[in-house]
Computed example of a mutant assay.
Amino acid sequence: MKKITGIAIILLILTFLSVIVLRIWNIEIVSIKNLLKSSATLIFLGLAIVIFIIVYGIFLRDNDQEYHKKKGNKAHPKL
């Protein structure tokens, strides 16, 4: 999952840099207005995901689950 996220971030950075380089040469594939709107949308979606993870961790996670701490090297659920 970390690799996929890293690859996606690198692709977004390369895309943004290529649009900037094209703008230097007065080649307009995507307007700055559309680029800013897309960036704002991605930031909004990122914030929504972070809020969802926080809400899930606080309210929806089962913290009552207990584990045997003395049974081997890994935690095993009590039955």
Rank of each mutant, 00 (worst) to 15 (best):
A40Q: 13
S18W: 00
V30K: 05
E66D: 14
G72R: 01
F52D: 06
S31L: 03
A8Q: 12
Y67E: 02
L42E: 05
H76V: 08
L47N: 12
S31E: 05
L14K: 05
I20V: 09
I4S: 14
L14M: 14
T41I: 13
I54A: 13
S18P: 00
L14Y: 04
I13S: 02
L60T: 05
H68G: 03
N73A: 14
A48S: 13
L79N: 10
L22C: 12
I4E: 15
V30T: 05
Y67M: 02
I9P: 01
V55L: 14
K69N: 12
I20P: 00
I49F: 12
T41D: 09
R23Y: 02
W25L: 15
E66S: 15
K69R: 13
D64C: 02
L22E: 02
I4C: 12
Y67F: 08
F59G: 02
K2L: 07
R61A: 09
A75T: 04
I51R: 15
L47M: 15
S38Y: 04
D64M: 05
K3C: 12
L79G: 09
Y67Q: 03
L47Y: 09
F44H: 04
M1K: 11
I20W: 01
I27Q: 10
V21N: 03
Y56A: 08
P77W: 00
E28S: 12
G6D: 08
I24E: 08
